[in-house]
Simulated assay, not measured.
Amino acid sequence: MPQFSIAHRTYRTKGDAKETIRAILYSYPVGSRVEDEEHHLLLLDLLDMHPHAEVKIGSGVEAFAIAPPQRGPYPGFRVIRTDGTYIDFSYLECLQPRTYRQQVLNVMGDEVKQTKTDYFESRRAAGTLCSDSSGQLLDTTNTAVSYFQGPSFIEIATEFAESLGGWEAIELTSSAEKGVGRFVDRDLAQRWFAHHQSRAVFGLLTQQESLRLPRR
């Protein structure tokens, strides 16, 4: 049976995902902020699917709010950025087929995911499982490896893509549309791995600290 996903969330159809988002939209009055933690996290992952996500995110996402209608009678979502600016976005645009940039980012993340696991294991072996932000002691069920101390993953990936001339220069296997593809050129995959290693600055946070970081 066909399925539709928003990050780790799986829906029976795209229509089911749309109804879930509409329920969030109409559960708040116009002008109010989205306060529910799970609603906020879903909208963060949804915004990442927007074809112009980088423009919408800008300096980073501080919060979401319900925007007044722009055309017609229907409200929408508004991104409140960390620099105090804001911009509206269409959730329907987010539900369109993923752009090639989004497909490449999915694959890039999969190509380097082991580095985050290795970092966590090194911290556990050293006996330093504590939040690098609050100092809170961590356990394996409440730990997130985060880029919060350096450039974000998207910034690192964008640097690499731009050094090649753009996202289209990275050829993916045919399974990339599902977010589980691979680099066709394995030498290029190794170059990406090395670039990521040279730029990534990991740290440990609690899961809630990580989830509430401004999205970049």
Rank of each mutant, 00 (worst) to 15 (best):
L213M: 13
H52C: 03
P75G: 12
D45A: 06
Y91K: 01
T99S: 08
F148S: 15
L211N: 13
S131K: 09
G181F: 07
L47N: 01
S163E: 05
S122D: 13
P51H: 04
G179F: 03
L105W: 05
Q96E: 12
D48V: 05
D48F: 02
T13G: 09
A169F: 07
R101C: 01
S32I: 00
G181M: 10
A7I: 04
I6S: 03
E162F: 01
L188A: 07
Q103N: 08
Q149A: 09
L138C: 08
I80L: 15
R101T: 01
Y100F: 11
E111T: 15
T141F: 11
L138K: 05
L105T: 05
E155K: 06
A176P: 03
P151V: 11
R186F: 01
R81V: 07
Q207V: 10
E171L: 14
G181Y: 08
G127A: 07
A125S: 15
L46S: 02
L211S: 11
R9N: 08
G179P: 00
R81C: 08
A125W: 08
K14E: 14
R216G: 01
T10K: 15
S134K: 07
Q70F: 09
K14H: 04
Y147S: 04
D36E: 11
F183S: 06
E111K: 14
A67N: 09
H195A: 15
R212Q: 11
F120M: 05
C94A: 03
E62H: 11
V61E: 05
Q103C: 09
Q103Y: 02
P73M: 15
R182V: 01
Y119T: 14
H39P: 02
L47E: 01
G72I: 10
D110I: 12
I66P: 03
S131E: 09
L129K: 08
K18H: 10
A176L: 05
T99G: 03
R12W: 08
V79T: 12
T158I: 01
A65P: 00
Y119K: 14
R71A: 14
S5T: 12
A125Q: 15
Y26D: 06
L92R: 03
V184S: 05
G150Y: 09
G60T: 09
L138H: 05
V201I: 14
S59Y: 05
D110S: 10
F183K: 05
Q103V: 03
R124P: 06
A23T: 04
Y74K: 10
A125R: 15
D132C: 02
E111F: 12
E62N: 12
Y28D: 11
P97Y: 08
L25E: 07
M1L: 10
G84V: 06
T85H: 12
T115P: 02
A176I: 06
A200T: 14
R215D: 00
L47C: 04
S122K: 14
A7P: 04
K113I: 14
V79L: 11
L164D: 00
Q136V: 14
D48H: 07
V30Y: 08
A157K: 04
E35F: 02
S163D: 06
T158Y: 04
P75I: 12
E38N: 04
H50L: 08
L44F: 02
A144N: 06
S59T: 13
D187K: 13
I6Y: 03
F77C: 03
